[in-house]
């Protein structure tokens, strides 16, 4: 009837054009709806006593019971302290590493050497976390590992690095730097690469040494990138990697190695306390959000750089 007529109208044509674009976008939209938005709805079980038979909708509300239970549990202090300490250590030691690497690399006159260093420092990024932790186990093994072989060779007592809780954080943070400093330096190198060469020329004419160029040209120019990344990191402060911590855990180092995410996994999926575990996870996300907002506000006031 009217179909043949409306097919020729410009309005219908523009819908037809958009309709193809909608189809192209649809798989991703549907996917995110199922695997991201539906779980967000499911998060309500943090305030319920989830019963698989009754489903998410039918389970009875319990208010903040799961949260108060976590706050008053003996695990709360320990898990929270471990998470925050590990995360802060990672931030303080790990965050500057790629920046320093990028600044040094940027001053290397030989392009060939620069490229070699880049290729090599990217390599650990492509090693899986399981392999990384496996390598730590091999190298730090008390009776056959290369570190202890070295210690005995120079006449020192071997140390059971992975069996002592007090070494856990250092090993975690240092191996993390080993794995990701190179990869994380890419972004700083890219923003150093976009500096106007005229600035270097001007610096040289004014008698700047290479060190002076780093201080007066390089560092000021990467500050915006640094602030943004620092903000993003602050917003993830409580999200220290589940995978690595979980793999590095053993009964001997659990005292310092148990962090919120590993605790959520154990309580939730191993003990099947779904509601309780979801509540802990939600608490974690809320702390992250609050941190992000605070740090973003401070940064806006102090440096006029912000995420939003």
């Amino acid at each position: 009837m009217a179909a043949s007529k409306s097919e020729n109208s410009p309005f219908f044509k523009s819908i037809l054009k958009d309709y193809q674009l909608i189809i192209l976008a649809l798989p991703a939209i549907v996917y995110l709806f199922i695997f991201n938005y539906v779980p967000m709805y499911g998060m309500q079980i943090a305030f319920k006593e989830f019963n698989p038979g009754l489903g998410i909708q039918g389970s009875p509300w319990t208010g903040f019971d799961n949260f108060t239970r976590f706050f008053s549990s003996y695990q709360f202090d320990r898990v929270l302290t471990n998470t925050v300490t590990l995360s802060l250590m990672q931030l303080i030691l790990g965050f500057p590493a790629p920046i320093i690497l990028a600044l040094l690399l940027n001053q290397i006159p030989s392009m060939k050497y620069k490229k070699i260093v880049q290729t090599v420092t990217y390599a650990p990024h492509f090693i899986s976390i399981v392999v990384l932790v496996g390598m730590l186990n091999l190298f730090l093994s008390p009776n056959s590992g290369m570190f202890n072989n070295f210690l005995t060779a120079i006449g020192k007592e071997p140390v059971f690095f992975l069996g002592e809780a007090r070494h856990f954080r250092m090993i975690y943070v240092l191996s993390g730097i080993w794995q990701s400093a190179g990869w994380s330096s890419i972004i700083y190198l890219a923003s150093l690469g976009s500096i106007d060469p005229a600035l270097y020329e001007a610096g040289k004419i004014d008698g700047c040494s290479r060190f002076g160029l780093i201080r007066h040209v390089d560092i000021p120019s990467i500050i915006p990138t640094t602030v943004i990344l620092l903000l993003l990191n602050a917003g993830r402060l409580m999200n220290v990697g589940f995978q690595k911590a979980y793999l590095m855990q053993n009964p001997l180092n659990l005292k310092e190695a148990e962090i919120i995410s590993t605790y959520v996994y154990k309580i939730g999926l191993i003990d099947a306390q779904f509601s309780y575990s979801t509540a802990i996870g939600l608490f974690n996300s809320i702390v992250n959000m609050v941190l992000l907002v605070i740090v973003n506000y401070l940064s806006k006031r102090l440096s006029e750089t912000s995420l939003w």
Binding site: A25, F35, N36, P39, M43, S261, V264, Y265, L269, T278
Partner: peptide
């Protein structure tokens, strides 16, 4: 659509709700 995507970058349901959905 862009906003729809970006929301998932900052919020997620967490381990257990995602597990229950899957």
């Amino acid at each position: 659509i862009m906003i729809y995507l970006l929301i998932t970058m900052y919020f997620n349901g967490g381990m257990i709700p995602t597990y229950l959905t899957v």
